[in-house]
Computed example of a mutant assay.
Amino acid sequence: MGDTVIVVGGGVVGLTTAVVLAERGRRVRVWSRDPAARTTSAVAGALFWPYRIEPAERVGPWALRSLREYLVLAGDPAATGVRVAAGLMTDTPLAGLGSWADELPELREARRDELPDGCAQALRGRLPLIDMPAHLAYLEERLGAAGGGVERRTVAGLAEPAAEAAVVVNCSGLGARELVPDASVFPVRGQLVVVENPGIDEWLVSAAGNGAGTSYLFPQPFGLVLGGTAEDHAWDPRPDPETAAAIVERCAALRPEVRGARVLAHRVGLRPARPGVRVEAVQLPGGARLVHNYGHGGAGVTVAWGCAEEAALLAG
Rank of each mutant, 00 (worst) to 15 (best):
G260V: 10
S215M: 08
S206Q: 11
G199P: 01
P239T: 09
A246P: 05
L217R: 01
A253F: 04
E196H: 13
L204N: 11
D201L: 03
L254S: 11
F222T: 14
C251R: 05
H233M: 08
N210R: 15
E242K: 11
W235F: 10
P237L: 11
F222C: 07
G227D: 01
L224Q: 03
W235D: 04
Q191V: 00
V225A: 06
E231M: 06
Q220P: 04
L192V: 08
P221K: 02
E242A: 15
A207G: 13
A207K: 10
E202R: 15
E257H: 09
A208W: 03
E249A: 15
P219E: 03
E249C: 11
A234S: 14
G227V: 05
P256N: 12
G199E: 03
G190Y: 00
A245P: 02
V195R: 02
I247T: 05
G223F: 07
R250T: 09
V205L: 12
W203E: 00
P239Y: 05
T243D: 08
F222L: 14
H233W: 12
H233F: 13
D232C: 10
D232R: 15
L217I: 08
G211M: 01
A246K: 08
P237I: 11
P239A: 03
A212W: 07
G223L: 02
D240C: 03
F222Q: 13
A253E: 04
V195G: 04
R259L: 14
F222V: 14
H233Y: 13
Y216S: 00
G260N: 06
A252P: 08
A207Q: 10
G227W: 01
W235Y: 14
T229G: 07
P221V: 03
